Computed example of a mutant assay.
Amino acid sequence: MSDVTGDTGDHLAAEAALHRELDEDVGHVGLEQVRTRSAELFEVLRGDSGVVEQARARDDLVHLHLSLVEHCARRFRNRGEPFEDLVQVGTIGLIKAIDRFETDRGVEFSTYATPTVIGEIKRHFRDKGWAIRVPRRLQELRMQIGAATGELTQKLGRSPTPRELAEVIGCTVEEIMEGIESSHAYATLSLDASDDDDDGPPAMLATLGVEDANIEHVEVRESIKPLLEGLGDREKRILLLRFFKNMTQSQIAEEIGVSQMHVSRLLTRTLAQLRASLEQD
């Protein structure tokens, strides 16, 4: 049996749902007839009728109890997962219940299958429903906080405080706060998401800054500033004309009144001096 049990009245409600919502292939027949048909199919499945007949009986059992799966899946609607996906997950639980069910125990199949189906759906929410992976401890704590919040809200007539939640659940206030924070990881907002209204706010992506291509040079510029202060006036001027005003060595030579060759030697020496100082730092 599944390690996650449902509420005590789940199987009764599920059996009633079977009576109201039988699969079209079976038709609207009485609940006793459903039980009888289910028993017949399990007898074929567990008997020696052959692989083909057993496979057909297994498929018929799945179709016969799909209403049970749909009933269980409705309990988890409006929690961020499509109903069709919940039915698919619940059907996996139903198939597991069919394969594990032992008819000689004298238990109704719906009584056995309901907690198995619900457990499979809960595991889906616990393991795959999170947008960002968080520890299982926090996932389970979030579910406890949700259940305790509903009960205390009804009892107190207001939203409970973290301390009140901690007393009911039996943990610390810090753990409650951690569990509440982890709930933000359950569903995320796309950066491209925006209001359909033309007058609404823009998408989050439009409000984010872009990467500055010059940011990687900030550290170099800040490191070289004190080194530039130690240079002579002529060397500073040559660097300014070459790298900030983009002048050629010939233009610089005309500007300061020396030969182009002399400018080249001064520039080479100054750059070597700065490079050596940076490497030492």
Rank of each mutant, 00 (worst) to 15 (best):
S194C: 12
L228Q: 01
D199G: 06
S194E: 12
T188S: 11
L189W: 07
L191W: 10
D199N: 11
E216Q: 09
D212Q: 04
A193I: 10
G209F: 01
R221G: 02
P226A: 01
M204Q: 08
L208P: 02
D195Y: 11
T188R: 11
D192F: 10
S190V: 04
E216Y: 01
M204K: 09
A193V: 14
I215G: 08
L208C: 12
M204V: 14
S223G: 05
E229I: 06
S194K: 15
V210I: 15
S223H: 01
D192Y: 06
G230D: 01
G209H: 05
I215W: 12
T188F: 01
S194F: 04
D192P: 03
D212I: 02
A187N: 08
G209W: 04
N214I: 08
G200S: 12
G230I: 00
D196I: 03
H217S: 06
T188G: 06
L208D: 02
L228W: 01
P201L: 15
G209L: 08
H217Y: 13
D212Y: 02
K225N: 05
L189D: 08
E222G: 01
N214T: 10
K225S: 09
P201F: 09
D192A: 13
A206I: 02
M204A: 13
V210G: 13
E229S: 06
N214Q: 14
